[in-house]
Amino acid sequence: MERQRPYPSDLSDARWQLLEPTFTAWRAERRGKGLDIGRPPEHDLRRIMDAILYVDRTGIPWRYLPHDFPPWETVYGYFAAWQKEGIFDQLNGLLRRLVREAEGRDAEPSACILDAQSIKTSANVPTAGQGIDAGKKIAGRKRHIGVDTLGLLLAVWVTAASISDNAGGIRLLSRIAAANPRVTKAWTDTGYRTKAIDHGAHLGIDVEVVQRDPGTKEFKVIPRRWVVERTFGWLMHHRRLARDYETHPHRSEAIIHIAMIDLISRRLTRESTLNWRDT
Results as ranks from 00 to 15, higher is better:
R5Q: 07
Y7R: 08
P8S: 13
S9Y: 04
D10A: 11
S12F: 11
A14E: 14
T22N: 06
F23K: 10
T24D: 15
G32M: 08
K33C: 12
G34E: 12
G38C: 13
I48G: 04
I52C: 02
L53Y: 01
V55H: 03
R57K: 01
P61L: 07
P61H: 05
Y64N: 03
D68H: 09
W72S: 09
T74R: 07
G77T: 08
G77P: 11
F79H: 01
A80H: 12
A80C: 08
E85I: 12
E85G: 09
I87V: 15
Q90V: 14
L95W: 10
L98Y: 05
R100C: 02
A102I: 11
R105Y: 08
A107K: 01
L114W: 02
D115V: 10
S118D: 06
S118R: 07
K120C: 11
T121G: 02
S122G: 11
P126G: 04
R141N: 09
T149D: 03
L150C: 02
L150Q: 06
V156A: 04
I163M: 12
D165G: 07
I170D: 00
R171F: 07
L172M: 01
A177Y: 08
R182E: 13
R182A: 13
V183I: 15
A186S: 14
W187I: 05
T190S: 15
K195T: 06
D198I: 15
G200Y: 08
E218G: 14
I222E: 08
P223L: 08
P223R: 09
R225L: 12
W226A: 00
R230I: 02
M236P: 03
R240A: 00
A242L: 07
R243Q: 06
R251Y: 09
R251K: 06
E253W: 10
A254I: 04
A254T: 09
A254S: 08
I255D: 04
I258D: 04
I261D: 01
L268Y: 03
T279G: 05
